[in-house]
Design a protein around this nucleic acid. Sequence first.
DNA 1: CAGTAACCGAGACGGTACGTCGAGTCTTACA
DNA 2: TGTAAGACTCGACGTACCGTCTCGGTTACTG
Lengths: 195, 195, 195, 195
Amino acid sequence: MTTARPGRVRSEAARLAILDATRDELAERGYDKLSLDRIAAAAGVGKATIYRWYPHKGALVAEGMLSEHLLPRVPVADTGDVRADVHDWLRASLASLRESEVGGLIRATIAATAEDADVAAQYEARVTSLTRTALSDRLEVGRRAGRIRDDAPIAAMVESLIGTVLLHVLTRREADPAALDAIVGLLFDGVAPTR
Amino acid sequence: MTTARPGRVRSEAARLAILDATRDELAERGYDKLSLDRIAAAAGVGKATIYRWYPHKGALVAEGMLSEHLLPRVPVADTGDVRADVHDWLRASLASLRESEVGGLIRATIAATAEDADVAAQYEARVTSLTRTALSDRLEVGRRAGRIRDDAPIAAMVESLIGTVLLHVLTRREADPAALDAIVGLLFDGVAPTR
Amino acid sequence: MTTARPGRVRSEAARLAILDATRDELAERGYDKLSLDRIAAAAGVGKATIYRWYPHKGALVAEGMLSEHLLPRVPVADTGDVRADVHDWLRASLASLRESEVGGLIRATIAATAEDADVAAQYEARVTSLTRTALSDRLEVGRRAGRIRDDAPIAAMVESLIGTVLLHVLTRREADPAALDAIVGLLFDGVAPTR
Amino acid sequence: MTTARPGRVRSEAARLAILDATRDELAERGYDKLSLDRIAAAAGVGKATIYRWYPHKGALVAEGMLSEHLLPRVPVADTGDVRADVHDWLRASLASLRESEVGGLIRATIAATAEDADVAAQYEARVTSLTRTALSDRLEVGRRAGRIRDDAPIAAMVESLIGTVLLHVLTRREADPAALDAIVGLLFDGVAPTR
DNA sequence: CAGTAACCGAGACGGTACGTCGAGTCTTACA
DNA sequence: TGTAAGACTCGACGTACCGTCTCGGTTACTG
């Protein structure tokens, strides 16, 4: 039951213009060079309109991230072959970073996350958790199909996958196919001598 | 044969005071709230002295990082048991983040790395590479000792370990002992069914 | 019909605080040691507010001068005796320089005038011209009363009077009464032998 | 008997290079934009060398002024006709200001004089006094020749002449020939009705 | 359908920090 | 001892943003 207060209603056009302008700024200049003056000007919006809805610079970026406005999702396929599906997800994730706008956005996001605990919490709860769940679910299916050991540490594997992507983003490295194979091999087979 | 240019020599006292003040500011406020005015004041140094040696804020942070001034090193022990040594390194690394100053510094470092490609390159070349080498060397010894398969993807394993630490830093998570065990188990044994 | 632009209106309080602080700084330290940082601090105003309205240091000083804020006016009396009235004006003008604040302000004004052609033009148009007119008018009345020759070079006389005051300011000299008499005698009687 | 102290002797080349560079800077940018860094660079001299000999910026300018390095002298001729000689001096003085370098230098000098009492005193004692004496002497000769009244206020006349030149410099005005005639007429004949 | 409450753009405000430049001092190596 | 070079502290410059605050004006619910 919406309260229906009196007064003018929030302008959706302004909201979207702000988020679009934020995304552009973030991709182009990064988080700490983000300027609300510039965003307001680019969005054709008064600065006060931004501050009416977002208390901090961080809050604005957080909203941008957890909407569709900032980051593309990389889906986890299910072809029946877990190992191949994980491999593909990893390859696709690293490939998406090659598109310069996506790489810039993710790095901006990481910077925001590093600087601001609230942003980090939002990000974890509403963005990373989706990826985490998607991977977990796929691995769980693989386990039930017998492609993964019953007692396998699935959560740890998800962590490793995400951590690997993160490290590649920060070090701005290429996604070397051989290295990809090595990672997937590692996670599935481990390094210990054959038991 | 040093060139012996004319003119006053660079003040080592000023250099150290600047790096100390930078570390304190970084730990306390993070990378994007870093103020060179404040650093200069805290170091008892003119702002021009900072800019004489460091063209960007990023360059200053980079120098701070690759000296002993910013980050503690976590050594990799060799007790004969690779698995335990890796486990200990991971536990110690994650534990060091609990000390609030270290956590703040690392997050500031990550932000700097995300925002500035030069900083990232420096960091990779002079900091991460040390850890990477230390871990690789230890694993290599383990391999020669037969505790690790001959064809094991050691480089990938190192990546996974560092990526895991990174992800914990950014998400500000506790180092849950069970999760630690899971990660080490994963890396050594993989998730595939027993061959 | 005033244009009524959008946006917040200019703060009159800030404008006056800036001019007052400028006057104080100018009297105390002179034109080239004038610091906009100090003015802003003394006026309780952001530096940007000064720069928003005055593009140069010179423009600020110019505005200060042509308002009542910087210089006192010395009136030209009309007692019926031109010679005495001019004498009094000259004495009063030179006397006012003895008050340390006025002397400092005038010297600052002269420095501003010497350094900046725009300031000089403003000063001529809106300050000196008032004195020039006041003296001219009084002398013209004296001419009509027959106390001054019909073909007397009134404009040149005004120039001489102002130039004399100026020279005293710059050389920081006392207003010697005998010298005053001599100047007035010179201007009325000339130096040529009696015709 | 020169004392012949030990050590290297003062470099005359450096002294002259400094004064030349000072004159150029002063003519081009004026007193308050004078930069000792720039002077030192232009003169090929260390900044310390300037400060060894001149305690303040003002002292350097003062020395420049009272040497031949800054200002041209306008001589006072003696053709037998005082009135014409004074007229010519005034015309030549005002004409010299038209040369842009001289005008700039004089205005810089005035600014220096207005800002710094020491400079003003030096200037009065070593520059203006020369002009003052030259004019006084010529007028005195005229008096002895009967072209000027015995009781004429010669000092006041000199003041008026110098004051007039000063006012023209500051107001950046043309030397209008008719105005020149008027001034000379004023000083010789006064404005009072014929006695 | 008039009031009025909440919104909107524009843009000025007090501040903080930026990166640069200049003043005046000090420290080298060399002459 | 004097000199060129150049690093030093201090402080001002003029610009850019921050987050706040009026302005005049626009919706849209409410009495």
